[in-house]
Design a protein around this nucleic acid. Sequence first.
DNA 1: AGGCACATCTTGTCGATGGCAAGATATGCT
DNA 2: AGCATATCTTGCCATCGACAAGATGTGCCT
Lengths: 205, 205
Amino acid sequence: MARYAGGMSDGSAAGRPYHHGDLRRALLAAAATAIEESGPAALSLRDLARRAGVSHAAPAHHFGDKAGLLTAFAAEGFEMLADTLAGVHDRSGGDLLELGVGYVMFAVRHRAHFEVMFRPELFHRDDAGLTAAQQRAYAALRAGVAGLPAAPVGDEAAQAGLAAWSIVHGFATLWLGGALPADQVGDDPEAAARSVIRLLFAQPG
Amino acid sequence: MARYAGGMSDGSAAGRPYHHGDLRRALLAAAATAIEESGPAALSLRDLARRAGVSHAAPAHHFGDKAGLLTAFAAEGFEMLADTLAGVHDRSGGDLLELGVGYVMFAVRHRAHFEVMFRPELFHRDDAGLTAAQQRAYAALRAGVAGLPAAPVGDEAAQAGLAAWSIVHGFATLWLGGALPADQVGDDPEAAARSVIRLLFAQPG
DNA sequence: AGGCACATCTTGTCGATGGCAAGATATGCT
DNA sequence: AGCATATCTTGCCATCGACAAGATGTGCCT
């Protein structure tokens, strides 16, 4: 639905037809850029509207309010995370270490999404599309833990999963926040993440 | 300096003298409450001023701007974290597991501070008081890693420290965000944190 | 082809916010 | 006693989020 039907394709504000054509997608893309620049707290609907070349009230039609836009943005992030983790799972044969590295790299490459996804005060927690996307992502995480070589069972498995999630989430968060001292981690997040995560899995049983 | 000198002590706005007496402290305390209620993004200087019973422009005198207030708030948080970790270190004889649990419990008990401390886009990263407090807290963390039973050296020690920091920071962040499924972790953050962190230290050498 | 229901977008407005400027009031030092 | 200064207030402006009302395009139905 809502395909772009205008004849002018240069994208300038002046030549744009009355209907944008894909405003919803354009606003989400603009949100990613804006959040990468200044963080989610500084996000402004009017700024997104300006970036998309529409009036200040246009976003409200698609998302209701600011929290609604961030709800869609977070849902998009969880979908992307689920896809990323599923891809890693397939390519690596279910290696949990690679899944963890994939989690960290998702956070680094899609910083804006990651920073919104785990800040529930910014969006509508009970949105149906959001919770569905969250379930997909969490299922992908659990699938990784289920494939552990040591194959822990019951509570052990649950706690191993929590530990794995915690270490990759913590590393990603600290990296994004610039909290990690540069002289200890260098500038390659993938290598740094891999050597840190490996420590969790270097255990006896 | 700036001691409270008024004769009326009921604290009501009407009976309050022209000078508040300890407005800086009162605003930081109000910030903690407000952030606990709605998160740092929704923080409003005018709301803090109302909570403290002063005019809307009073906060600017003490903190310059909103980021200045959050800078002081983050610095206060790092001081508190340093004190907390130092206390745990003394009481537990340098047990790294207990230090990790202390880190998580600090985040849970001082949620507002913790949520600001690792969001550098909210404050002035290069403030002298802030960086000094950060150094104190990071030193307390390193002191814990230095006391590891396995006593790793060089890069090993640095990576063990990063892994420990990552797992406790990640667990704390996920807990605060409500991301952890309730049926897996229960409602006691200390017990849940301890059993998760233990997995990192249950390694051969 | 004509026309109508609807989705999409615009303009205008309101209350709230952050930041600045100028003035009022208390404090402390000499 | 008096003055410099710290502290706080009032007033103002640009911006923001949200809402209401109107304009414009799309697609379906006859």
